[in-house]
Amino acid sequence: MLVGAFQDKADDWTFANIRLLFDHPYIDAYKTSIEISLVTALLGGIGGFFIAYAAVRDGTPRWIRGGIMTFSGVAANFGGVPLAFAFIATIGPLGLVTVFFRDHFGYDLTEHGITLFGKTGVELAYLYFQFPLMILVIAPAIDGLRREWREAALNLGASNLQFWRHVGIPVLMPSLLGAMILLFGNAFAAYATAYSLTAGSIPIVPNLISAYYTGNVLDNPHLAQALAFGMFIVLAGTMAIYIPLQRRSARWSK
C-alpha cells in the first residue's frame, strides 16, 4: 500500500497520486471525514464524560454503574450495518422518532436538515459507539480523582465549582484529551456504518476508497492506495498525540 501510493499505472515512481489528494474532490472528502470525526469526538467526549461521571459518582447505586459499564462494553463493539439499520428505523423517513415528531408536534425533521443520509445522520449514528467508548475510557480516570482531594478542597473552603476548576479539570485534562483523540481516530477509521447508512453516497474517504474496489471505476488502484495512505498519515498523527498524552494521564494513577 505504501509503495503503491507512489506508483503510477506503469509501476513507475510518482508523486502524482499524492498530489491528487489535495485536489477536488479528494481534499473535500478528507475535510468531510475530519469534520464528522471532530464533531462526534467532541460531542461523544463531552456526553460520554457526563454519563460516565453520573454513573461512577457518589450516590449512584452500584448496579447502575455495573450495568452501564457492561452495556458500554457491548455497545462500543456494536456498529456497522446493524447500527445503520437501527438508525434508519429511528430517524429515517418512516422512522419511529420522525413519525412521532410529525404526528405529535407537526415538526418535520427532514425539512430542518435532520436527515439520515447526510452528515447529521452519520454523526448521530456514530455517537452510538462514541459515547460507550468514551465511558469505558474515561470512567477509570474519573475513579482516579481521589475523594481525599475533593474533601481537602472543600475543607479549605473551595466551592464545588472551584474544585472542578482548579483540581478536577486540570487532573483529568490529559485523560479527556487523550480519550477524545481516540474517539477521533475511531470515527475517522469507521466505514461500514456510513457506507450502510448512505449506501456509500456520503463523500468520506473510506467510501471513496471502497468505490474504487466495489464500483466499476477501478481504473486507478494507485489512487485508492494514495487515499488509504492519506488516512494512514492522519491516524498516525493522532496516535503520535495520543501516546504522550496517555503517559501523562497515567501519572496520577499510581
Binding site: 505504501l2 503503491g4 469507521a190 466505514y191 471502497s210 488502484p221 492506495q225 488509504a228 488516512m231 491516524l235
Partner: peptide
Amino acid sequence: FVVPPIVMVVGLLK
C-alpha cells in the same frame, strides 16, 4: 489502530 480495516484491505489486496 493506526491502520484500520479500510486502509489495511487496500494493502492486503495488493
